[in-house]
Nucleic acid binder design. Structure first.
Lengths: 238, 238
DNA sequence: GGAACATTTCGGCCGCGAACGAAGCATGAT
DNA sequence: ATCATGCTTCGTTCGCGGCCGAAATGTTCC
């Protein structure tokens, strides 16, 4: 065995994610919010006591972080890196369509629009990335990106202020491989800002018990006017 | 339980990586080369028969691909996406220094210079990314990047021809979070080209049974002259 | 203080899957 | 043909880890 440093800990982390209950828990946390232990128990599909054990392990490995608040304990993903790792795994998972899984209505909703950690994904996320690229508001040299000056102005009008944070802190404009569309969508501070702004404007709303998003009628209108994005087709053949 | 599509398959993939033997196997394949089953058995630290089973599972899930050649069977990672997922996991793994693992000499070598799938990582990879950024050959707007025109010329002089492949195919310039340095290094076609060119010039050589790289004396010289990169310090306090 | 709720700890059960060696197929060498 | 090598299949063993329910701890509300 060559390098033990990677081997062991890599396996430890992956094994942690590699349990169905824990994977479901982490998936639920992928929308960036903090959830209570009991909510996570529901998502994980296991009892409260079992969930408690799982959460302890996840916290121990620094995959999730915990904040006590009254008699609740709120758990969230510990860092954007964790979210990125999980997203990367999901991308790989959606690849191998060996045995294809029946696509339920929930899945179609997820494919249309969802949150990915703290930014938008699915056909909506892709459409936004495409429009912004087309109008030269951002430049995605291949799968990586930068915001142009016109872009900065446009975004400012839209109500998003981006400081010129350079090397430090969080990336301004990253891309993230969309597992359902297999193309990159916008992540980083820009992706997060776009997402939260759309919530603020009431353009999108969370669908209960899911990471999927519903686009409101105002959203439909706003997206068309401001971004020239027509509603991502109701049902795509895929 | 909310969305089953992600949950289950996410867990499946992660569980696959979450076994120590398989993780070691995948780690060994992270240098981008294809290895035979018996070599992988050695890396995995388990018997040939056990390895065979592991490889079958990995191939079944499309994590690795196999090519028969004579009486050998060569296995390699199935796609860059798989490499990316593993790298992301390693990044997360190197985070939680709860119980810190003793850093052996092998680790120091890995930290100095190594391959990450098909590009350079470790202090060498970081130094290259820094230099190219400093000289404005590439622009890493935060953690994402594009090649400038001067950069294209410089690279051409160095013997690297980058076609203007746009959306399709592989990303020209991606970044990849370095698990040892915790900063992004260069991946994508550019990263791969830099790496293979340096092999071609004999600037770096593989260290036996490891993903670590040795920098040759020509390499030391060339890196200093062409990139202004002085040898990544022999031993850093870390 | 007592009741209701949230979460963790404990003990015990049970199954999955990793491991090995021996035997079975290939392919290549003599 | 015969033997060697590389890899897979089979049958078996065995231990780790997930699961639950009951009870313990903790927190808020009235």
């Amino acid at each position: 065995m060559t390098t033990m440093v990677s081997g062991t800990t890599l396996a430890e982390i992956a094994a942690l994610i590699g349990d169905v209950a824990r994977a479901n828990i982490l998936s639920a946390l992928m929308d960036g919010r903090a959830l209570t232990a009991s909510e996570l128990a529901w998502h994980g599909g296991v009892s409260a006591s079992t969930t408690s054990g799982h959460l302890a392990k996840l916290a121990d490995a620094n995959l999730v972080a915990m904040a006590r608040q009254g008699r609740h304990r709120y758990y969230r993903l510990a860092s954007p890196e964790v979210a990125q790792a999980i997203e990367a795994l999901m991308a790989v998972a959606s690849f191998g369509p060996k045995r294809h899984r029946p696509v339920g209505p929930k899945d179609e909703a997820l494919r249309r629009a969802r949150t990915c950690y703290d930014h938008l994904a699915g056909r909506l996320g892709i459409a936004l990335a495409d429009t912004l690229t087309e109008r030269r508001y951002i430049v995605l040299s291949d799968s990586a990106g930068a915001v142009t000056d016109e872009g900065r102005r446009f975004l400012c009008d839209f109500g998003i202020e981006l400081e010129h944070g350079n090397g430090h802190g969080r990336a301004l404009c990253r891309t993230c491989l969309d597992w359902s569309e297999r193309r990159p969508h916008l992540a980083g501070r820009l992706g997060a800002a776009l997402c939260s702004r759309m919530f603020e404007l009431g353009w999108v709303e969370r669908i209960k018990d899911s990471r999927a998003l519903a686009i409101t009628s105002q959203g439909r209108q706003g997206l068309a006017q401001t971004f020239g994005v027509t509603e991502p087709s109701q049902a795509s053949g895929d």
